[in-house]
């Protein structure tokens, strides 16, 4: 687990600030000088209470929002300078699955493979791989609007993993799913790590972080308040169990 520290980061967030201006009201500072690195072959959890800036950070990393200040670097290059190539190496799961309710599962996967420039046999192989990995075989012909919450999340994840991205950014990947689907997601994240991919995810389930994360970044009101392995955070706070650690860190920051 600690091997990642000696490698070059695949993704670096440097001094990230994101401010949302508002008409006739003070602006909202969603992210305020955030710094962290993500290494290949590691799972990094971004923890924080609601409204702490996790989703905004993910959206900036996914190039959906330009930063007000600071940079997001992919292997040392600013992702907003030439974001096309970077986006093809990124798999982003938004907080909402964002599925087209009139398209079938197969159409979703086939179109997404097309967006990534996959065609012919390569496309079929990629689709078959994620269908098997996320157990979508029985619902391939069903429209997304007819799927259960769990299957919707599986399809959204399958779409994210489809092109075998180098970096996975997953915003609450297990939100609202049942236990079997949750396990499937955890398994997929572990496999991605073993394949050398970098996984950055957020969640409110502390057990999930304890099981999965190699390192943890805790943010509060847009600022980083702690970073390290679970052991590092336990040592810093003198608490056992991530729930207690997290609450103590928040209490200190407040």
């Amino acid at each position: 687990m600690a091997v990642a520290a000696v490698r070059e980061p695949v993704l670096s967030v440097r001094g990230l600030v994101r401010i949302f201006p508002r008409f006739a009201r003070p602006p909202v500072v969603a992210v305020n000088g955030l710094d962290f690195d993500v290494y290949p072959g590691e799972i990094l959890a971004l923890l924080g209470p609601n409204g702490s800036g996790k989703t905004t950070t993910f959206r900036v990393i996914a190039t959906l929002l330009p930063p007000t200040r600071g940079k997001v670097l992919y292997r040392g290059r600013d992702v907003f300078q030439k974001d096309g190539a970077y986006r093809r190496r990124l798999g982003y799961l938004p907080p909402e699955p964002g599925l087209y309710r009139h398209l079938t599962v197969r159409e979703h996967l086939s179109l997404w493979a097309g967006f990534q420039g996959l065609s012919g046999e390569r496309k079929n192989e990629a689709v078959a791989r994620v269908v098997e990995r996320f157990g979508l075989g029985s619902v391939l012909r069903r429209r997304a609007g007819q799927l259960s919450t769990g299957y919707r999340q599986r399809l959204a994840l399958a779409r994210t993993f489809l092109h075998e991205p180098e970096i996975l950014v997953l915003d609450e990947p297990t939100r609202g799913v049942d236990v079997p689907t949750g396990l499937l997601v955890e398994q997929a994240m572990r496999e991605a790590r073993s394949e050398g991919r970098a996984v950055l995810f957020s969640t409110h389930l502390m057990e999930e972080v304890e099981h999965l994360a190699d390192r943890i970044v805790v943010i509060h009101e847009g600022r980083k308040i702690a970073e390290g392995t679970l052991e590092d955070l336990a040592r810093t706070t003198g608490e056992r169990g991530l729930r207690k650690i997290f609450l103590k860190l928040l209490a200190r920051a407040s």
Partner: peptide, 14 residues
């Protein structure tokens, strides 16, 4: 509004 734009924009399509 349907929440499909985010994933679409981040899909690698120019």
């Amino acid at each position: 509004e349907r929440g499909t734009m985010e994933a679409f924009l981040a899909s690698g399509v120019p």
